[in-house]
Each structure stands twice: as structure tokens, then as C-alpha cells.
Design a protein around this nucleic acid. Structure first.
Lengths: 348, 348
DNA sequence: TTGTAGGCGTTATCAC
DNA sequence: GTGATAACGCCTACAA
């Protein structure tokens, strides 16, 4: 039962996967490549004996099918592209894990690319993914136009998060940023706060705008006038939260609570307050958004809006898998929840 | 200058990258595929006029070369595998970004897979990468045996971090965990602390063991006896740091400082201390390890050991690129640095 | 049930 | 300089 491959002078002795091809397996047990292919893919019925011989040869030679060639021939690559914005984002990182967990058992490999919140770069990412012939694409939020996504979906199954959008071949998983921000603001209002500062996110992020809307809506519902001077621009990272609070304090605009459009800015805000001698929550109540892993262990533990990032990833991957299988996805993201910890308290 | 592809009935009007092939470009301007290929790869000199015609056709048709086919034909895929341990690790995430930044401009795409600190899973990851015919592999730390890596390096260029190892086709980027831990411990000792607790990491991580060694070495150098009762097991995440401190306090073992084997555990420790009414740094000094993005903005800002994660990623990618180009990498990681912030102070 | 003959999109090796 | 032609490893008709 020795391999007798002509082309390869190698002795092909169980060197797992080195360069063993389907053809070599076929030759090794005297059948045609098609037969081996059929066995591998269950494309047709093959006699018991040949099947066994081939299985044995596969094991002995340590043959691993080459997805590349498979892709070229069959038009599938068993890989899906994932457009994330920053591979090291604490929030989306968790979603990536969810995607990986869901895709892996299905035999698909994710191909991660980063768009850096820049429509042009995102488009380039998508070109890369297409050139690599991914079977489908997951777009985590980002700034591509709805139009661009619709067009993309005509070529490939697409799942997009962070917006609601309908088109054939496309499934959108929207998370309710508006409601989350409304909940956070409402929580502060219900504790008697009226002068609630808002540290906004970068307005180029779609999320940021929704969160601002939610903040305003809650104020309005409570009959509290919206004051632009209480809204500070931020960039979604710690340092920007810190600077926003410094500016706020310097402006002498009175406030008793702060709602930061994400946890990272809340952490920065917390440090700025501390530096200025203000305690959380005794002097100022603070609410974040996202419920990052660190929020529960910050000092004080941060009251925040829980976003199901991990679930987001899983659902996105599931939806894509369903699209790929010709089914209609139906998963929905859970609504954002308020997680009350220790950074807020009723206004005295 | 209209396309006149026979096989494709499509009108191929600038639909970027849809399914335009090299052959179609060739046909569009009446040259052979080889010529187009040569122009694309600079494999040989081509006449000015043909080059221009082809360039124009490429632009007009929106042709994007297919790396898949390229890989099949040329034995290269322009993709490199990256074995990380958890795609959402706050520390390694930054390294992934570094890798991406370095690989992208070189035309390579990273293929990220997660081994979850499990040698078996890591091996499976590597099989996946090999089956996808990556041109090289970067292994971020992990638990594979040196032997397995050596074997792998015989087939592919390999760059591995977190260990020192020599073999042809392999480049190791070791970071000095020992020295980092020694520095951290020494810092506390130099401030007069003698009862220094150590929250260890999961001993299955190679890093964890080195950091424990560094801690012990510093104690020894200062003539402070090593007390096993001051060493608490941890798991590298916040919650384990929190529980370690609770156990420590419950044990009634006196201590004036804590060195946590990573920042996440330090954050958890900080919260536990707070809950038990102990202030940082007034009552207890605290040092972390890694210098995560959040460390500078925690309360109080955490004194820690800076690990150049981003640099780690860049260097690893550079080294692999050099290996791929047949050169000998020589990059070295900067030594760990102590970053003194506000969580430590001299013992009264 | 099985084998043969393309073809997928590109590159490498020849001749010309 | 340039163009055929044959791989690359697999899959899918089609034929036997």
C-alpha cells in the first residue's frame, strides 16, 4: 500500500498535510480523482470497498483537502469576510469572538479586515475580501453607504450590524442605540438629576448620533430643556472623556450627572472628576454605555447600558450561515439593558 | 476599446472587480494573458505601449487579480496565518493591529485564528492555516511545544513570540517577562515594602511562570524571604484578581503591597481592596503588568510594566516578511519598562 | 458505480 | 518582447 505518485519524488510517509493532493490519494489506491472527490463531498454513492480503501489512504497519507483549489473549482472558499473597524476594539473584539465561535464548527474561516471607520478603507477591505472570493461578508457597523451595501449584496450574501436596512441577500442586525441612551438618561432623571451632561461620541459614527438622539428624547419626555452647553464632543476613547470633563468643569456650567456615550469615555471622565476633587457618585453620578468587561471592575463599578456584543457576533454569523444555506435569517438582538452598579445615586 | 470577451456574456462595463479576469483584460486589449501577468508582476520588460493599453484596460474593467488563483498557480497566497490565543484579548489585540498595519501595505492579508491557550486547538489552527496555504505563520505565544514549532518551520517561515528558540526558517521574538516582573517587584521593595503579595497568572501560560520567577528573584536579591502564603493563584482576568485579594485578606496574612501578574487582575484587586475598605495607594500599593490602554485611566492610575504589544505585532510581521523575502530578521523587542503612576507609594 | 475531460484564474517555461 | 502551453488541486458534467 505504498504511494506511487509519479510527479512527487517525496516518500509521502504520513507527513500530515505536507503536500498530499487528492490526486495522490486516488493514485495510491488505484481509483480516479473523481471517486475520491465524491467520497470527500458525498456527491454520489461509492462502493463500500473503494470508500474504505480511500479512507485508509487519506488517513495514511495525512491528506488535507486544499480549500484554495476547492474554491477555484467550485466557486466556494468556505471563508467569510468580516469587516470590523479596529481589530483591537474592546467592544467589537467580543463580537469577533462570537463570529469565530459560530463559524468555526460550520467549517468556515473568518477573514478579518479593519476599516477604521473610514468608508474608503472599508470599500478597499471589501475589495480585498471579494478578490479572495469569500462566500459572504459580515460588516460590523461602519460607514459605508446603504447604497454600497445593497450593491454588494447583489453579489454576495451580506450581514450588516448597526443599521436597519432591507434588501435581498442582505440581513441587518440593528441594535437599539437610541433606546439604550434613552434608558441611561432616564435612569439619571429618575434619580432626580436635571443637569445631565452628555459626552457625545465622534459624530461620524452612526452609533454616536443615535445615542445623542436618545439622550435628547429622554430629556424631552421629562420636560427638561436640552442645553447644548451640556453636550461635550468626544472621540470614544478614554482621553477624550477626560478632556471633555475638564472642559465642562472649566466652563462652570453646573451639572450633577454625566452620561458618556461609551464606557471608555466614562472611565476617562471618572479620572477627570477625581482629579478635580469630585467623587463618583457622591458628587456626580456617571453612566456609561456598552458594558465592557472592565466596567464591572472599575472604581466605582460603572452603571452602564449592556450591549450584547458577543451575541451580536454570534447572531451575525448565524444569519450569514443561513443566508449561505439559502434560508431566511430571523435572529434579533436583545434590547439594551440598564445595568445599575455603583456610579449613580439619587440626587440629594 | 470595448471588451469582447467571448466566454462571458456580461457587458463588463467598469463593474469593479465583479468577475473580471486577467484573461479578459488580455483579450480586451489584444495581448496574451502572459503579457498582462508580466505587467502585473514586473516579471519581465514589456513595451511601453502595451503596458499603457493594459493599464488602461485594467482600470476600465476594474480588474482585481485573484489571489486564490494566483496562489494555485504560483504556490503563494499572499496571506499569512496568525495564531492568536483569543481574538478579543485586550493585550494581544493591540499586537494584531500591529501585524495588520505591517502586512497590509506589503499586500499580505492576515488570517487570524484562535488557539485559546490549548496546544491541541493551536495545532488544529495551524492545520487550518496550512490547508489554506498561507505563506507563513506568526504564532503569538501559546502553548505549542518547541518541537512542534521547529517541525512547522521546516515547511513554512514561522515567527513566534514569547519564547527564545533558534531554528532555520524560524524567528523568535521573546519578551522579557522575567525582567518586567523583577522591575515591578523591585519598585515596591525600593519603596520599603517587604510584605508584597503576588497574584500569579494561570501557570499554564508560559508568561505566568516567568513573572513568578521575576518576583522571586527580586525578593531574593533584596534578601526578603519568599513566602508562599503571599502568592495567590489567578487566571489573568479581573474576577480572579478580585477573588485572590479576598482570599488574601481572609487569610489574615499581613501585606502592604500587591503585584498582579497582569493589569486585568490588578483592576480586580483594586476593587476588592476598595470593598474591604483599603485604599490604594494609601493603605496598599498596587502594581500591574502589561500597561493596557485602560491602565492610565483607572482609579487610581495604575503603576505597571509597559509591554510593547503594538511593537510586538509590527516586529513579528516585519520578521515574517523578511523571512519570506529570504532575509534574516534581526528585530528585537524593547525591554519592559516600569511606568510609575499613582497606585504605589513609599511605605510609611 | 466509475472514469474521462474539461475548466476555475493565474504563473512559469518554453519557444518564437 | 511576446505568445502558446502546461501546470496548480479540485469539482462537475458527461460518458461508459
Amino acid at each position: 500500500m505504498k504511494s506511487s505518485a509519479r510527479k512527487n519524488a517525496t516518500t509521502t510517509t504520513g507527513k500530515p498535510g505536507s503536500k498530499v493532493t487528492l490526486g495522490m490519494v486516488a493514485e495510491a489506491c488505484g481509483v480516479s480523482p473523481s471517486t475520491v472527490s465524491r467520497i470527500l463531498n458525498g456527491t454520489a454513492v461509492v462502493s463500500q470497498e473503494k470508500r474504505e480503501a480511500v479512507d485508509r489512504a487519506i488517513a495514511e497519507l495525512g491528506f488535507i483537502p486544499n480549500p484554495i483549489a476547492r474554491g477555484l473549482a467550485g466557486g466556494r472558499t468556505l471563508s467569510v469576510g468580516v469587516v470590523t473597524q479596529a481589530i483591537d476594539s474592546p467592544f467589537y473584539g467580543v463580537a469577533l469572538r462570537g463570529i469565530e465561535e459560530e463559524l468555526s464548527p460550520a467549517g468556515y474561516s473568518p477573514l478579518f479586515v479593519s476599516g477604521h471607520w473610514n468608508a474608503q478603507e472599508e470599500q478597499r477591505c471589501i475589495d480585498v475580501l471579494r478578490s479572495r472570493r469569500v462566500d459572504g461578508i459580515i460588516v460590523l457597523t461602519g460607514r459605508l453607504s446603504d447604497e454600497a451595501l445593497r450593491k454588494l449584496a447583489k453579489e454576495l450574501p451580506v450581514v450588516v450590524t448597526g443599521r436597519s436596512l432591507k434588501a435581498s441577500g442582505l440581513y441587518a442586525l440593528d441594535f437599539n442605540d437610541f433606546e439604550g441612551a434613552r434608558l441611561a438618561t432616564h435612569h439619571l432623571l429618575s434619580q432626580g438629576h436635571r443637569q445631565i451632561a452628555f459626552i457625545a461620541g465622534d459624530p461620524v459614527h452612526p452609533d454616536a448620533q443615535e445615542r445623542l438622539r436618545g439622550y435628547r428624547a429622554a430629556l424631552e419626555a421629562a420636560g427638561v430643556p436640552y442645553k447644548p452647553s451640556l453636550v461635550l464632543p468626544g472621540k470614544f476613547h478614554e482621553e477624550s472623556g477626560l478632556m471633555a470633563v475638564e472642559r465642562l468643569i472649566d466652563s462652570r456650567e453646573p451639572f450633577t450627572a454625566i452620561f458618556a456615550a461609551n464606557d471608555q469615555m466614562a472611565f476617562g471622565a471618572s479620572l477627570a472628576l477625581h482629579r478635580r476633587g469630585l467623587r463618583v457618585p457622591e458628587d456626580v453620578s456617571l453612566v456609561g454605555f456598552d458594558d465592557l468587561a472592565g466596567a464591572a471592575h472599575s472604581l466605582p463599578p460603572l452603571t452602564t447600558i449592556h450591549q450584547a456584543a458577543h451575541e451580536l457576533g454570534r447572531l451575525a454569523a448565524q444569519a450569514l450561515l443561513q443566508l449561505l444555506a439559502g434560508q431566511k435569517p430571523s435572529g434579533k438582538l436583545p434590547e439594551p439593558r440598564l445595568i445599575v452598579r455603583s456610579s449613580t445615586r439619587p440626587l440629594k
